[in-house]
Amino acid sequence: MHEGSGAWQLVVSGDPALYAIVRLSLAVSLSAVALAALVGLPLGGALALARFPGRGVLIVIINAFMGLPPVVVGLAVYLLLSRSGPLGDYGLLFTPTAMVIAQAILITPIIAALTRQTVEDLWLEYRDEMNAMGVTPFARLATLLYDARIALVTAMLAGFGRAAAEVGAVMIVGGNIDGFTRTMTTAIALETSKGDLPLAMGLGLVLLAIVLAVNASAWGLRVFAERRIG
């Protein structure tokens, strides 16, 4: 592959800067997924089970937020974390933590919406049985999330894919600082602006390979789990 030869050379030669970028990208996006799952799984599950006025509106809003523009999220987090913003005292702007926060906000709706759908479907199947066993509402939520765990991995992967691929939010709140907040996507944007399109393309292929590898391992896990627990 001629286009990406520069990038592949970096991969093959074990370029430390490239590996640092890859490591940071993975760390940021995985942290964001963990954080978003912490919020999105219970939220989606609760939305599936609870009935209250305004539920429909909330579901529509969360579904719509799956398409939140990263730049808008980035800007909002920027204004929030800026020294002149309400959370400025934490000094988090232009740090990996800021990028984690922005990505977590971006993907929480995705995880919550997919979780709601999954849990609601499962609830239809489980409702009578759980009522007959006298399961309390809170335990219902826990059971449904647990029993939907394989399907929920897919929801988290969708979140990871979105986080790993987005550039708008991390560029704004991370600042693309060399060796500190530079991720795969911001590095690609930078190389593009420097006119080194082959290197940018090569980095893009490396990113694609990483996302593929993460998905492949999740798929393997899923197949293994399905064989084990059905």
Binding site: Y126, D128, E129, M133, G134, Y146, I150, I229
Partner: peptide, 24 residues
């Protein structure tokens, strides 16, 4: 207690299904 025509098997082991019922 009730046994349905098509009972739902919780996605865990047979023993864990019983523990679940005992717990609740």
């Amino acid at each position: 207690a009730m046994l349905f025509q098509r009972p739902v098997m919780l996605r865990r082991s047979a023993g864990a299904n019983l523990i679940y019922a005992l717990k609740h």
